[in-house]
Nucleic acid binder design. Structure first.
Lengths: 109, 109
DNA sequence: TTATTTGCTACACTTTTTGTAGCATAGGAG
DNA sequence: CTCCTATGCTACAAAAAGTGTAGCAAATAA
């Protein structure tokens, strides 16, 4: 397996321009990616604990996502398990308000 | 084609709990979904204009995404083309800060 | 009336994800 | 040391999702 890491300046799914936001969207729109970050929000989780917390992605994709997110400096593997890097925490902090939004939105359709 | 609309309370990719945030992540992590919303941020675009703006998704997926996002009340089809609903605007407003984050983040790895 | 543009659908192909099996390594218990 | 369980994966076939190209029907423009 060769992992495909989105990088600025590259042509990316969702954009031929390689704009940073599109690079980020490319990464985050891979299955389970945001959920993984979300679960790691405030805790460090082992591979299997993460699998459970996320709703059982296949180990294959989970591992692929973990490698990609690590390569992009959003998560990091520590002795106790996987955890967010400072940049990953910053990102999740920006995404956290979506939680409240989602509740309102879900009720409305 | 039968479209698969994420709904609260349903088991969803990334969550068995059907929590609103997971439902939202399920929707937004489908290819091109966030990009479509992002492009519609401040303008109304026709199908083909949207295709160009997003970086040429196949008409098949684009159409699928448009139906899903419409079904979820995030976009709406108007005489001049596709546009965000008020809820869609609210969502994009929350996501907009990611643009600046992405610039910093991209430079750092 | 003819030519364009627009909004798709069809369809075969490629890529991604799934689901299950299972293996190697690292403790812990006895 | 020896057996047991937990962990972190890899392998692989099958299913699902996305791609790319072709093309058609309806609306507008010339």
């Amino acid at each position: 397996m060769s992992i495909n890491i989105p990088r600025i300046g590259q042509s990316v799914k969702g954009s031929t321009s390689g704009e940073p936001i599109m690079v980020l969207f490319d990464l985050l729109s891979r299955r389970w990616a945001i959920g993984i970050m979300w679960q790691l929000n405030d805790k460090t989780l082992t591979f299997r604990a993460l699998q459970d917390a996320c709703g059982n992605p296949s180990p294959t994709v989970l591992n692929t996502r973990l490698k990609e997110l690590s390569a992009c400096a959003l998560i990091n593997r520590e002795p106790q398990g996987y955890a967010l890097t400072p940049q990953g925490k910053e990102l999740i902090a920006l995404i956290r308000p979506l939680g409240d939004y989602a509740k309102k939105w879900c009720k409305s359709y």
